[in-house]
Structure formats: C-alpha cells, structure tokens
Design a protein around this nucleic acid. Structure first.
Length: 574
RNA sequence: GGGCUGGUAGCUCAGUCCGGCAGAGCGACGGACUCUUAAUCCGUCGGUCGCGUGUUCAAAUCGCGCCCAGCCCGCCA
C-alpha cells in the first residue's frame, strides 16, 4: 500500500488498491519475470471481474497495451521503455492465449516548450541548432508539435518528423505497434465526447482536479485553445459552449512550468477540435477512447499524473483506469538521457553495436531498478546476455533462480531459440575487427575455437556480423580494441639495432613463403638467436603494423597479409 | 516536504520478497597449451554484505533508527 499524497480529498479506496499501485504491480514473489506478475494483475483486473465473463481476450475484444511520449526531439533509448516494457507484457499475455493490441500515442498536440540543442534529420544525422533555422523554431514555442513546421522541411510538422523517426526505430526492432496521433484524435472528433464530458460538468472536473492542483479555482476551465492568429495554445478560456462544440478564448501569456510564452492578445472562438485538454484530463481520455488495459510510465508520472488520472478516469469519465506500472529511468554513461541537452543514444546507434536480442535483454530487466546504459562497458552487457543464452541452452551451470529466469525470458528475446547459433565473445569480436579481411576473421575465429567445424552457414554469418558491431564499438569508444592495420604509411617507430636485425631475418624468412605456424615459430626462434626478449620482438611487430604495443597472434596474421607488404614493412621500407 | 532506487570482491552486478555455509562475470595473479596473444583450459587471491540496533537457534535477507549516492514529484507534460 502506498500513500500517493496526504491530501484528504483523495479517494482512499482507489489509492490503496494494489492493482492501481504502479510500484506494486510488477513485484510478485511467485514469478521470476516481472511481466508475468503484471499479466496476472491484468487478467484478474481486466478480464476476471464479476461483470465480465470473458476468461480470454479474443480477436473481437483484445487487451490493449499503450505507451506514449511527446515527439519533443530525437527518440532515444529511454523512450523505448514506453514500448518494450509493454511488449514483454503483451507477449506474456499472448502466450496465455489472449489477443493483444499494442498502441503508442504520439502526444503531438502538446506544446513545444524548449528547443533541443540537438536534432536528428530525416536520415538520422544528428545536427546542432546551427544547422537548422533555430529562430523559426523559437518563434513557435508554445504551439503544438503538429503546428510547428518540420525544421528539415520534409514532413508536415515538427511532431510528425520526430514521430516518424520513432516509428522507424520501432520497425528496426521488428515490433508490431500501432501508432495513434493525438492531434489526429482531436481533429477527427474522437475526443469530442470526452471534451464534452469535461466541459459539460466543469464543477465536477474542478472538484476532482482541485485535490491535486491548488491552482484550480472556481473560474478554472480545463481546456487550451489554439489561437487562430498565432497558433499559441492559450489557457485563457473565456466561454464554453458545449452545445455548439466551441470555446472562446483570449490569447494571453502562458506560464508552463518555468517557461512563459507570450500571447498575441487575439480574442476568438474555435471548435473544440482545435484545442486540447490539459494533460491531467487528456491521459484518462486516451484510456477511455482506446480502452487501455495496461500502461507503463516513467517515475515522473507516478506521483502527480497517475493518482489524478485514476481519480479522473473513475469519477469524470466513469471508466476503470488501466493497470499501471512505473519504470525507473535509464542513464547513459551515468548521466540523464535528455533530448534537450543532447545526451542521447538512439536505437539505430545501439543496433550498430549489438544484436537486437541483447537490447531486448536490457529491457527485460527489473523495471524499478535504475540502470546505466554504458557504451564504454557494452562488452559487459553483451557478455551477460551470452551467458543468459547459454543458461537457457543448458550449456553452462548456474544457480537455479537464474536458470529459471533464463528459461522464462530468453524465448521472448529472440524470434526463435536456435541452439546452433554461435556467439563470438564481444571483446574477441573486437579483436577480429582490426582486420577488414572477412576470410581472415573467420579463420582466426575457427582457430580459436569459436566456430565449430560443423557450424551451419547461417550461424557463421550471424556470428561474424558481431565483428562489424564490435569494430564499430571499438572505434566509437576509442578503447583498447580500436586499432587497425596501418597499411598506407609506416608508423613512426624507433627500434634497437638488434631488434632491427631480427626483423630483417624474419622478413627474409617470410619472403621465402611460409605459413602462419612457421612464422609464429620463427618469431620465437629469431628472438632467441638474437638474444632479445620475445615480447620485444612481438611488440616491434605490433608497432610496425598497428602502431600499438599489442595485437593479434602475429604469425598467422602476417601469413594472411600480402607477402610483399609484410616483408617491406618488417624491413621498415614502407 | 513527499516518493523511488542503490550501497555485497579491484570493477559490473546476482542473491534480499520466502532468514539456513557469501556468489557470478570481468580484472589481477600463478600455471598449462612443443609458443609471454588480448584466444582456450586449470588454479589462486580477493568481501566487518553502508552504520547501529531489535527479533531469532540462525540475519546480506525481517523490524526500527541512521549515513551516503543517484533520480523523480511539489501543480509543465
């Protein structure tokens, strides 16, 4: 039981109901996977009620899972909580025989409140404000995202641009999610009846909301109008006519949080389809319109919006609120994800670094724990996933609980569990990434025992695809795996005379045509013959090839490169 | 003022709901592999489980009180 507020006006029965406690829903001792606990609550709450005989949600009456965000800027990893948390619950429910629709509302009638420092263009290039007409965006502050022009001049609006980018990420993840535009719902009249309900009994609306917001007084009218003259979403509603579905307004300044947006002073009358409900009413109206059964949301909504939403759903719209779930926010490299500040990582970027199933795995972890997504330490996440996968296939030992968890969750991460799949350890894949020669990559991976002799072709191809990703990771982070063959120019290296003599001998040996093992042997014997430390000779080789102190197993690597280049390089000629 | 999460090995974390020998991966160190790779295999080191207190035969785990860190809400969405 959680007290959301100490305001005595609030309906005690509602807020003490565990099924409506967004912190309690996902915690259940009987399940190893949180989504199972959530599904239990959804079944008992939304299907098993006394006035509902349906035990299974079928085609005609599916369960509805929703998420949603404002299209305020670059869609980043954190936004995918709204989709992937719901996805796992949807999959669990489908596994129990229910039909489930997964929806995502783009809250695109919200106001543009701040200009992000970074934007992404139509092709996902991250650009700064200097690359767009920032002044034009600034003049549109306070207007709906769908009333702000697309800064890249391609799509109909700012809102549509960023919604489309989000949709592209969803498609990349192979998810089946129906997008709903809030603006479209206003424009086509879908919200009419809910607006009429709110504006038709403003006494009731005020009475309910007043328990949560002190600014609600006897004059308060819960509606924003889009000014005909300047487009500002103004809150100064002077008159409401439910019968004619119009509101009159004065375009006054708007204070929204810390921001103030100047109104033009225009007075006019508009259709209710040209305005919007305040968020506190709009959210429950979405539940009512779309029949939402479950909705995950960030902890920012847990204390204000959610309890008031429950109250409004129940007492204003007369519906059951959906089953809720709070998720904690991710950080990126320890810092808050933020579109506006530009500390973001996109799904497209992440998928260049790891397989989709690893990203799914990240989102399958406990929702209430704060987690850091660290690109610097991405190898740890991938290793963890690989281990999880091996637990599922009984390839390694593990504690009972983690095995149970792997058995339950792993099948939800992949299209189809395939025991024959091959995973090259991520950091080793990064080592392989130092050469662009694909046959050499495969040969080294085979030699090191990462690819079995009887491996199917598809498994080899998928395993080697990780090499590209790990290479991208190494280059992006500039870490210790970020080295590449310095083929075009001789690195600036100073070597002792005895080392140089050994290199010359090695070059002559290689020039005669030798295989990898022979060369490897020769490195050791040459070092002995010249009475130098073996590691110094290896180091000299790595410096000449990579400008690094260390590298891959040298003999086989040299053998795979073109002989002419290797000989010349060892002789420090080019 | 309120809420959430975390503090367990050098690092990242599991275990806490339901009390029963303190765990994993990585790193480090040592060794093996005719060979000092960043591979593979074997092994070793490493923890007053944030602090205090209560309950208990038994506490990382339950109760109470603290400390530290991060985040959210306090009327924007």
């Amino acid at each position: 039981m959680t007290e959301h507020t100490n305001n005595s006006d609030i309906d005690e029965e509602l807020v003490t109901d565990d099924a409506l406690d967004p912190y309690a829903v996902a915690s259940d001792a009987d399940h190893v996977f949180w989504a199972d606990a959530v599904a239990d609550v959804i079944e008992s709450r939304r299907l098993g009620g006394a006035d509902n005989q349906d035990e299974t949600a079928g085609e005609g009456n599916p369960l509805v899972i929703k998420g949603g965000v404002s299209p305020s800027g670059i869609p980043h990893l954190g936004h995918f909580n709204e989709i992937l948390r719901g996805y796992f619950v949807a999959e669990v429910l489908r596994g129990r025989g229910h039909t489930v629709r997964q929806l995502f509302t783009s809250d695109d009638r919200d106001r543009l409140r701040a200009i992000p420092r970074q934007l992404a263009d139509t092709d996902w290039n991250i650009v700064g404000l200097g690359d767009v007409d920032a002044g034009a965006l600034g003049r549109n502050l306070g207007r709906s995202y769908t009333d702000v022009p697309d800064p890249f001049g391609v799509r109909d609006s700012y809102g549509e641009h960023f919604t489309q980018l989000l949709r592209e990420s969803v498609e990349q993840l192979g998810l089946d999610v129906e997008f709903v535009s809030n603006t479209a719902c206003y424009e086509d009249g879908s919200f009419d009846e809910y607006i009429e309900t709110v504006l038709g009994d403003t006494e009731q609306a005020r009475a309910v909301l007043a328990a949560y917001q002190d600014k609600v007084d006897d004059e308060y009218l819960p509606f924003f109008a889009s000014c005909e003259e300047c487009g500002l979403l103004t809150e100064d509603i002077t008159e409401v006519s439910v019968d004619s579905q119009t509101v009159s307004y004065r375009c006054s300044d708007v204070e929204a949080g810390d921001d103030v947006f100047s109104g033009c002073g225009h007075e006019g009358t508009i259709s209710i389809r040209d305005g919007k409900l305040p968020w506190r009413f709009e959210w429950p109206a979405q539940w009512a319109l779309l029949g939402v059964d479950f909705e995950p949301f960030g902890k920012d909504h847990a204390e204000g919006s959610w309890p008031s939403g429950v109250d409004i759903a129940t007492h204003v719209f007369g519906i059951e609120p959906p089953v809720p779930m709070v998720y904690e926010w991710f950080t990126l490299e320890g810092e808050a994800l933020s579109s506006s500040s530009g500390n973001v990582v996109t799904v497209a970027e992440v998928l260049e670094l790891l397989e989709p199933e690893v990203l799914y795995y990240f989102f399958a972890k406990e929702p209430l724990k704060q987690r850091d997504f660290s690109i610097e330490r991405l190898d740890q996440l991938v290793d963890e996933f690989d281990r999880f996968e091996q637990l599922y296939f009984d390839e390694i030992e593990g504690e009972e609980q983690e095995k149970a968890r792997a058995n339950r969750v792993y099948p939800l991460l992949v299209d189809e569990p395939r025991k024959e799949r091959i995973r090259i350890p991520y950091t080793f894949a990064a080592v392989l990434g130092m050469t662009d020669d694909e046959s050499l990559r495969e040969e080294i991976a085979r030699r090191e025992g990462h690819i079995p002799d009887d491996a199917p072709e598809w498994a080899i191809n998928e395993a080697l695809a990780r090499v590209e990703r790990a290479q991208t990771w190494a280059r992006r982070t500039g870490n210790e795996f970020d080295y590449e063959l310095k083929r075009s120019a001789l690195p600036d290296v100073s070597l002792d005379a005895d080392i140089e003599a050994a290199l010359d001998e090695l070059a002559a040996f290689i020039e005669a045509g030798r295989d990898g093992e022979e060369i490897q042997q020769k490195i050791f014997s040459t070092a002995r013959d010249h009475d130098i430390d073996v590691s110094d000779l290896f180091s000299a080789g790595y410096q000449l090839l990579f400008d690094e102190e260390q590298g891959p197993k040298l003999g086989p690597f040299l053998a795979k490169l073109d002989k002419e280049f290797v000989v010349a390089r060892l002789r420090r000629e080019r």
